[in-house]
């Protein structure tokens, strides 16, 4: 196989993907505050996997059997990453893991997670007892 421009593109996508995946996990391990930890994996890992999937598309194209269904996984990951991050952020707020107090909402009384907690306070001790 010659060192065509396609090969270089595949190799670059693989290396970038590997690096970003690694950065995501290093961030997950290194950062101290739970909320700060949320940043590295949601962004870096998603882009890293996206890049590796892109390399897979290019590789299939280079080896003469084009395949595009990796694009589905890319789209799926980029749509679900914010949702998972949102849910995990809500878990952090719910468990009171943030060190800095939340600011007051600009135009309303409470944030949704706090309002929910206030609403079902009676059920919370019950849940704790189960766990």
């Amino acid at each position: 196989m010659s060192h065509g421009i396609l090969d270089i593109a595949i190799a670059a996508a693989l290396v970038i993907g590997g690096l970003f995946t690694l950065v995501g996990s290093i961030g997950l391990l290194k950062l101290e505050a739970p909320m700060a930890r949320l940043h590295a994996p949601t962004k870096a890992s998603t882009l890293g996997v996206g890049s590796i999937l892109l390399a897979s598309v290019l590789y299939a194209y280079a080896s003469g059997a084009p395949s595009y269904h990796e694009l589905l996984i890319i789209a799926f990951l980029f749509m679900t990453a914010p949702v998972s991050a949102y849910f995990i952020g809500k878990v952090h707020i719910h468990l009171g893991q943030n060190r800095k107090p939340l600011p007051k909402p600009a135009r309303d009384r409470l944030w949704a997670t706090e309002a929910k907690r206030e609403e079902d306070t009676p059920s919370v001790p019950e849940m704790k007892a189960d766990a």
Binding site: D7, I8, L14, G18, L19
Partner: peptide, 23 residues
């Protein structure tokens, strides 16, 4: 060049799996 990049990517992803496991 693709083979070397592939080996690098394998190593990076495996290492990140390990780091995630620690967390």
């Amino acid at each position: 060049i693709v083979t070397y990049a592939l080996i690098f990517a394998f190593a990076a992803v495996s290492l990140s799996l390990l780091l995630t496991m620690i967390r």
